[in-house]
């Protein structure tokens, strides 16, 4: 996790649903109401970096807003992941699905979410490795394409690593005759 890590920066700008607990003047444009103050109880989607700060900053014991889990980590997605991790195109949920999940696990006490995420990551990683090894060796990319399109950033990185390893190995095996 580096300061310059693009994935971390992009994860920071994922939107999360928040509910304002205080009335804020001049912020009405967040709710498409430019001339009005932002009423307490309004729900808006804010980027994670802003929402996290506001949720953790207290002013006379009420935080500015309360966070809730983003729809990408909602019950629907989790149930689908519990049923079969391989069948869910995670990229459609969020480009940085696991990054977002890890940040949410920091903010919320959700042991079950952690278990589901870890299981999906490990199971899908096995599948990613299989495709990474096969890529370029055979021509049947058709069946894999759906799965590959559903990979999110961490998995794409894994795929690249698995493929690099297999490629280096294959190059050496082909060159050993010389």
């Amino acid at each position: 996790m580096s300061y310059y890590d693009l994935d971390v920066i992009l994860t920071d700008s994922e939107k999360v649903p928040c509910k304002f607990e205080l009335e804020v003047p001049d912020l009405g444009y967040l709710d498409n109401n430019p001339s009005q103050p932002l009423k307490a109880g309004t729900s808006v989607n804010l980027p994670l970096w802003l929402a996290e700060l506001l949720a953790l900053t207290h002013q006379s014991s009420t935080p500015f807003l309360t966070l809730s889990l983003p729809p990408a980590l909602g019950d629907n997605v989790l149930n689908a992941l519990k049923a079969d991790p391989r069948a869910v195109p995670l990229r459609d949920q969020s480009q940085n699905f696991y990054g977002l999940g890890a940040r949410m696990l920091d903010l919320f006490e959700e042991p079950e979410l952690g278990v589901v995420l870890r299981r999906s990551f490990v199971v899908r990683a096995g599948e990613v490795a299989l495709h990474g090894r096969k890529a370029g060796a055979t021509g049947d990319a058709g069946s894999a394409e759906d799965f590959m399109r559903g990979l999110e950033e961490w998995e794409k990185k894994l795929y690249r690593q698995a493929h690099e390893g297999a490629k280096g190995h294959k190059e050496w095996m082909d060159g050993v005759k010389k």
Partner: peptide, 28 residues
């Protein structure tokens, strides 16, 4: 040795991912 060289990147990636996902549970 050759098998390790081939799979090192992948295995390290998986371990790192599991570590990041489990970091908060580990802290608690």
């Amino acid at each position: 040795a050759m098998e390790l060289a081939e799979s090192r990147g992948f295995v390290l990636g998986v371990v790192e991912g599991v570590r990041k996902l489990g970091a908060s549970a580990e802290a608690t």
